[in-house]
């Protein structure tokens, strides 16, 4: 559990950490769109280079990025196997028994895997360099135009920030309850099917109880300090776009435009 790093904020001091969260969110969205433009291998090479540059600038270690991708490995293998059965275009590469693997399947899977990898790298760059609180402020600001047509921007932002805030707590709580039940002879790893069911129950029930308890406590604490969702609030931290923030936004959009150009003309 301790090695679960997806979505974790890593406190470092780097140019990427110092960027305005709004700039980072917009840049991330532009990059994500760019990923889904079929720009071929040239396009992906450019995107990879850009993302690698951002990672270097952010001082995040590549082992950290690797760790955040690990949970996805299983999915990638699964995708590959599925594709091998389904896609039958291109030439036959290998034949194992009745099953032939086509070059089309391999290419298609590679495309998907590259996209997934890029997506994870980009989102990790955002979540690892932006404090959850700054992220919320950024989201809230970006949703401001939408709040005129009735989208509850502030509430959405608050929801997201609370959810993010509770992830590490819930992971810790899970480990704790697991240990307590293991001390009472529950075997989380070995054991028969029926034992597994009772093991899972002994974990889930207390986890829910304590999650509800926490939610309740938090709601009370917020109310006790006068929080009311609809009200106008001032901010302790005021976001301000600087030169580098604008450059980031422009750069990411240029990258998006570049990918479209590559997709069209190359």
């Amino acid at each position: 559990m301790g090695s679960f790093v997806l979505g974790k904020y890593i406190a470092l001091d780097s140019p990427v950490h110092r960027l305005d969260p709004r700039a980072k969110i917009v840049a991330m969205l532009a990059m994500l769109i760019a990923i889904f433009i079929p720009a071929g291998w040239y396009g992906y090479a450019v995107l990879f280079a850009a993302v690698a540059g951002v990672i270097l600038l952010s001082k995040l270690s590549f082992t950290f990025i690797w760790k955040s991708m690990k949970p996805m490995l299983f999915m990638m293998v699964f995708l590959f196997i599925m594709n091998c059965f389904v896609i039958r275009t291109g030439e036959v590469l290998v034949t194992v028994g009745k099953i032939s693997i086509y070059s089309g399947a391999v290419m298609q899977t590679l495309y998907i895997i590259v996209r997934l990898l890029l997506m994870i790298m980009i989102t990790t760059c955002l979540t690892a360099t932006t404090k959850p609180l700054d992220m919320t402020l950024g989201i809230e600001d970006l949703l401001k135009p939408a709040s005129r047509i009735g989208v509850p921007g502030h509430e959405i932002a608050m929801l997201i920030s609370i959810a993010l805030r509770f992830i590490p707590d819930l992971i810790e709580e899970t480990t704790r309850i697991m240990k307590a039940q293991e001390s009472r002879g529950v075997d989380m790893k070995e054991g028969k099917f029926s034992e597994k069911i009772s093991a899972i129950l002994s974990l889930i029930v207390p986890l829910f109880v304590s999650a509800f308890q926490r939610a309740d406590d938090l709601a009370n604490a917020m109310e006790a300090r006068g929080y009311a969702p609809g009200e106008k609030r001032t901010r302790y931290k005021v976001l301000k776009m600087r030169v580098w923030d604008w450059l980031t936004v422009i750069g990411a959009n240029a990258l998006l435009a570049g990918t479209i150009v590559i997709a069209r003309f190359l």
Binding site: A180, E182, S183, G185, D187, P206, V209
Partner: peptide, 20 residues
């Protein structure tokens, strides 16, 4: 490790969270 866990009973800080 089951036998060991039966021989050594461990009660945690705030064990009431384990009731289910």
């Amino acid at each position: 490790l089951k036998k060991l866990r039966g021989d050594v009973g461990l009660i945690f800080q705030f064990p009431e969270y384990q009731l289910f």
